[in-house]
Write a protein that binds this DNA or RNA. Structure first.
Lengths: 187, 187
DNA sequence: GTCTATATAGGGATAGAC
DNA sequence: GTCTATCCCTATATAGAC
């Protein structure tokens, strides 16, 4: 048994042991990301992905156990990013002076991961289903810590509202895409 | 030819000519709204809707020409709401004093149409496809005026950012659902 | 207006050759 | 690692009886 996709999803796709020359798995993920964001997850068939990949459907199943696994792998990318971002936030005290810098840095990173955010923004339904089925302990943590941060009673309500606004604004900006007002959070 | 769904989609569903006793069409829309928001548009089959409706699949096709038409009808509800909201905004001058009141009123309305917003938030992909196919002149207008309002150079940049924040915050609040901080836009 | 039955198509997924 | 061929299932949509 070659056992191609061991636990189906791995954190680092560049290959832990076997050194893949060009990374077919990566290409699949990139194509999927593109298609999922433009057409939506459900409307995108494996056939389409395979087509654009140059290979056939079955080839994909060597690298991923299912269509959902592809989405999951994409989701994990954002996941890792989120965890990293959170640690920087929750470690620091709630001093307003720091927040400006923190938010600024965070927003920069978000812009780089743009495509991932849009994917999640546009396919919430599909992604929520992932969580209903594969009950990641990982993810529960992350989600909870996020909400805690947003509703921590020790932090003044104003700050929480402000943070929500910032996130909302950035997301909105990402979606509307065109006008990137350089965003130094003055308020 | 009975020609049940004439132009397939109508603004007022209570029936322009024929007086429907209890409004089967309405019930379909309500059930669909519920299912689409909870499971997602693509994951929801007409069979499910019919089941919950008490009738069979084919019955639905009497009232709607296709599954997309149901989504479209739901979309139009929000559409009408949006147009109304916009007119109140764009008519008024950009004086900051007015905005507080305007936003306040707007947010109230948004909360009432909550389900509709969530539907759109969670099924953006599906809804965008509607627009690619049926190129509503109507909708182009609306969308454009919205962006104009958000990027009108006559209005100070700060205000625009602020408005984006407000929308983002409200949307975020709607999704996270639980904590409804009563939102008088102080900033 | 609503039903049953059916046509048609396309999806995800598997088996096994190469 | 990739391909061909195929299975099975569910979906939308239609036709025509009641």
């Amino acid at each position: 048994m070659p056992a191609p996709h061991p636990t189906a999803v791995e954190a680092d796709p560049t290959g832990p042991g076997g050194v893949e020359p060009l990374g077919t798995r990566e290409r699949i993920l990139d194509i999927a990301l593109e298609l999922f964001t433009t057409q939506g997850y459900d409307k995108t068939s494996l056939r389409q992905i395979a087509e654009q990949l140059g290979y056939s459907k079955a080839a994909i199943y060597y690298h991923f156990a299912s269509k959902e696994d592809i989405l999951m792998a994409l989701h994990l990318r954002l996941h890792d990013f989120g965890r990293e971002a959170l640690s920087s936030i929750s470690e620091s005290e709630a001093s307003p002076e720091l927040w400006a810098l923190l938010l600024d840095r965070l927003i920069d990173q978000m812009l780089q991961h743009r495509a991932l955010f849009i994917l999640h923004e546009r396919n919430q339904a599909a992604i929520e289903e992932l969580h209903r089925e594969r009950h990641d302990a990982d993810h529960e943590d992350l989600q909870m810590r996020f909400r805690q941060a947003l509703s921590n009673p020790e932090i003044a309500l104003e700050f929480r509202v402000r943070l929500s606004c910032a996130f909302g604004a950035v997301m909105g900006g990402l979606i509307l895409a065109g006008d990137v007002f350089a965003e130094v959070p003055s308020d």
